[in-house]
Amino acid sequence: MRTNGGSDLIRDLAATQYCCQQEKTDVTIQPAINAPVISAKGLDLTFQTGDGPVHALRDVSLDIGKGDFVSFIGPSGCGKTTFLRVMADLEQPTAGQITVNGTSPEAARKARAYGYVFQAAGLYPWRTIGGNIRLPLEIMGYDRADQDARVARVLDLVELGGFEKKYPWQLSGGMQQRASIARALAFDADILLMDEPFGALDEIVRDHLNEQLLKLWDRTDKTICFVTHSIPEAVYLSTKIVVMSPRPGRITDVIDSPLPRVRPLEIRDTPEFLEIAHRVREGLRAGHAYDD
């Protein structure tokens, strides 16, 4: 592990990749910080399936401000993935409105406004790790030198420095998942949509990547939507925790975290942290009770 080098890398990344945004951010950070980047009102989504309609989302309303780190937590099948896919224009709501960056999700997608990390890594087996990370850059038309620099940067960021030339089958599942995160970080998208990105990782690596992700978020002012099944992970990472419950999928609680932006791992032992975790757990229980 190269933990001690990690924060330097993040600083490098922040300094170089986002240099152009720095100016803008400095000027606008105060008034714009809570202007909604994603705003959903009364979203409904029903899938028509062979065994009848599945109500995946019902009356979902949520505002996500610029620079928010939002976690979605809830039992399996409560529509977390579906909600993320609606934001990404991969699924069309059957009712309600949603705007992303003030426009439709489709316009935001066409403007390449977000990076999406899927539940499964989904790397191309015929591309090396470096080649996989290069994929969005090729499609978006970055020039060759810029591609090389970005690939090297994000590989270091997820600590896959020596693996650029390896093929996915030569990596463990957790390493593949990290490569898929690097792929979403390689281009300049203000919004990061992450669907259980660390679900396949061991506790130590997960802690480490959580720390890295927080630092990245803190320095780059990305807006992050993050799906997880882990209460500590949700509380540790988020400024806003959205608790959902299934059948039909809906939001049962939205918790604004009072924790500071800069969070050492030890914060997880503080009373404030445990109190929020408790509230999330209660919210999850209530969702279940409603069901039975």
Partner: peptide, 14 residues
């Protein structure tokens, strides 16, 4: 190619 892989390209607006 799996649906997820086509979805990924869609998010890149490929």
């Amino acid at each position: 190619p799996a649906h997820a892989q086509l979805d990924l390209l869609k998010t890149y607006n490929a």
